[in-house]
């Protein structure tokens, strides 16, 4: 039981981070129907930019995080303006390949500059372990979980109760209708990318605190796909629940199966879940089932 609790706590923390990263993906998909394969690269860039500001320049944490968010927002802005805007109206394959190409480009550039070396943030979270019901875990997990939950709550609030959130939901419903009531659809798209990039960057920063910044961070970005498929592509609650479920299942499965299978279960388990979802419930828990006509 203690063992289970241990795995579950680690799983839920990872799950909260997955939710956060997946939220960025869902935001873009909801407003512009664009599938962003480069979300993982925002995570990677976030980790390394944070490392640059905080560890290398020695800035205080809060300033580093603010700069990180600004840098990532700029990246999202540039990407949307330069590469996604010209593809409006193109088939889905072109968009998928464009974001894949972007992910290669960003990934290559980051590795070229940093050499993909493992970097760590300075210790600013107390190291004393926390005990819950016999399970012992480090405080980092609690902090990251807390921050991720706050951010997820903030994004949800933004989406449901602010003016720009409303614009986004209207744009997601129909571009023409949104335009006809005076919403600037283009700026809404840009805003979605800016927010998604910033959220991904913070996700990368938090992941970097837990496990150190390395080239593997982009792999974590790929795990948004099982998450959003479980939750449903256009659902924010879906992304939150999906993230938690995938994180939990992945860690518990890895905890119990790794000794039997010889390791590496975390890397593959979410994808096995994904195949099962695709076969039995392809539109996820809260996604809209698409009805097609000729």
């Amino acid at each position: 039981m203690t063992l289970f609790l241990q795995f579950a706590i680690a799983g839920i923390t990872m799950g909260a981070l997955y939710s956060l990263i997946a939220l960025g993906f869902v935001l873009i998909y909801k407003s512009s129907k664009i599938l962003n394969f480069a979300q993982g690269e925002f995570v990677l860039v976030g980790g390394y930019v944070g490392l640059f500001f905080i560890t290398q320049l020695g800035l205080p944490i809060w300033l580093g995080v603010v700069l990180l968010v600004a840098a990532l927002a700029l990246l999202g802005f540039v990407i949307e303006k330069l590469t996604i805007r010209p593809l409006v109206g193109q088939p889905i394959l072109a968009i998928i390949i464009m974001t894949l190409g972007l992910s290669l480009l960003i990934n290559g550039t980051v590795i070229c500059i940093t050499g993909s070396e493992l970097g760590t943030f300075p210790q600013f979270i107390p190291t004393a372990p926390i005990k819950i019901g016999g399970a012992v875990f480090s405080q980092v997990y609690a902090w990251c979980f807390g921050i991720a939950v706050i951010l997820v709550a903030l994004s949800t609030y933004f989406f449901l109760y602010t003016r720009y959130g409303l614009y986004m939901r209207a744009t997601a419903e129909s571009h023409e209708v949104a335009q006809s009531v005076g919403i600037k659809v283009r700026s809404t798209f840009t805003l979605a990318w800016v927010i998604a990039a910033a959220i991904g960057g913070i996700g990368g920063f938090l992941l970097g605190i837990i496990m150190g910044v390395s080239g593997d961070l982009s792999e974590f970005g790929l795990k948004v796909f099982p998450v959003v498929l479980l939750g449903g592509l256009e659902s924010i609650p879906g992304a939150i629940i999906g993230g938690m479920v995938i994180g939990l299942l992945e860690n518990v499965a890895a905890g119990y199966l790794d000794p039997l299978m010889g390791g590496g279960v975390t890397e593959v388990f979410p994808y096995i879940i994904m195949v099962i979802i695709l076969i039995f419930k392809p539109y996820g828990l809260f996604g809209l089932t698409r009805i097609e006509r000729i």
């Binding site: 972007l102 290669l104 480009l105």
Partner: peptide, 21 residues
């Protein structure tokens, strides 16, 4: 060596993006 090992990927990504646009 870092540049030499990643330049292929960077150029490929760039070409892909440029071609799609």
């Amino acid at each position: 060596p870092q540049v030499a090992s990643t330049i292929g990927i960077i150029v490929f990504g760039l070409i892909l993006v440029l071609f799609l646009i």
